[in-house]
């Protein structure tokens, strides 16, 4: 079986004025279907560029990138858009939901850009199914402002799932959330991964990375470490622990 993601001497260079910034330098990497990878690194390490590149928002400056067997470098803007639409689900740090639309409408958004298009009824059905998967089945008609941060991120995950992508890409998915909500969101990812979804996330929190199966650490545009996670956190267990700790605090005080 060929890898879902295959990078070969992948480089990405930006030009800011006179300066050339080598954001990612000659990276080779393979990620198989079903993996759960955290890409980590300090700011400026190239992890965001890596994320944008894996998300097909951009083409490599040099080197090759195959996603699900498709050579990304050979695609034009529209083909890249279609590929993102069908194969990638994006989850952003700031959720990036449309404020005036309901949760369900937000989830329907990627289906608007499906080619060929599907019927409105199908869209609603699929959106409701995605919402149920993230455990918000009864909140479809709520607007983002009526939902908590964790719930908003769940809506964003549902939006990412709705076109049945091959890959979920999450950019600091817990960056705006408190500890317990972060654990819950990681629980959603673990659940999705368990059912076969490939998940790649960018994070700078070691704690969060321990929920993943594989950690890739970047520095100065290169991969400096690529390890399997031992003693992996399980979200359900961690939340239980947290609850017990909270109870203990309440009992002693």
């Amino acid at each position: 079986m060929s890898a879902l993601i295959k990078l070969e001497n992948f480089s990405k260079t930006y030009r800011t004025g006179e300066m050339e910034v080598h954001a990612v330098q000659s990276v080779s990497l393979e990620i198989q279907s079903g993996e759960f990878v955290a890409i980590m690194g300090a700011s400026g390490s190239g992890k965001s560029t890596m994320m944008n590149s894996l998300g097909c928002l951009d083409r490599p400056t040099s080197g090759r990138f195959w996603l699900d067997g498709v050579d990304i470098g050979s695609l034009n803007r529209d083909q890249l858009a279609d590929l993102r639409n069908k194969k990638i689900g994006f989850i952003f740090q700031g959720f990036n939901l449309l404020a005036r639309s309901t949760a369900l409408e937000n989830i329907e958004l990627p289906m608007l850009y499906l080619r060929p298009s599907i019927s409105t009824q199908q869209q609603v059905e699929r959106a409701e199914k995605a919402l149920a998967i993230v455990g918000l089945g009864n909140r479809g008609d709520h607007r983002p402002s009526q939902l908590s941060g964790g719930q908003q991120q769940r809506v964003a995950i549902a939006r990412a799932l709705v076109n049945q992508p091959k890959l979920l890409l999450a950019d600091e998915p817990t960056g705006n959330l408190d500890t317990q909500t972060s654990m819950e969101i990681m629980g959603v990812f673990q659940e999705l991964n368990r059912s076969g979804m490939t998940v790649i996330m960018v994070t700078h929190e070691l704690d969060i990375a321990r929920y993943c199966k594989r950690n890739v650490i970047m520095r100065d545009g290169r991969i400096v470490s690529d390890t399997e996670v031992l003693n992996r956190h399980d979200a359900v267990e961690e939340i239980k622990k947290l609850r017990l700790e909270q109870q203990a605090v309440q009992l002693t005080s």
């Binding site: 928002l57 858009a81 993102r84 639409n85 994006f90 990036n96 958004l109 850009y113 076109n163």
Partner: peptide, 8 residues
């Protein structure tokens, strides 16, 4: 966001 999720 729209472009990221597949808008041409």
């Amino acid at each position: 966001v729209r472009m990221a999720i597949g808008a041409r």
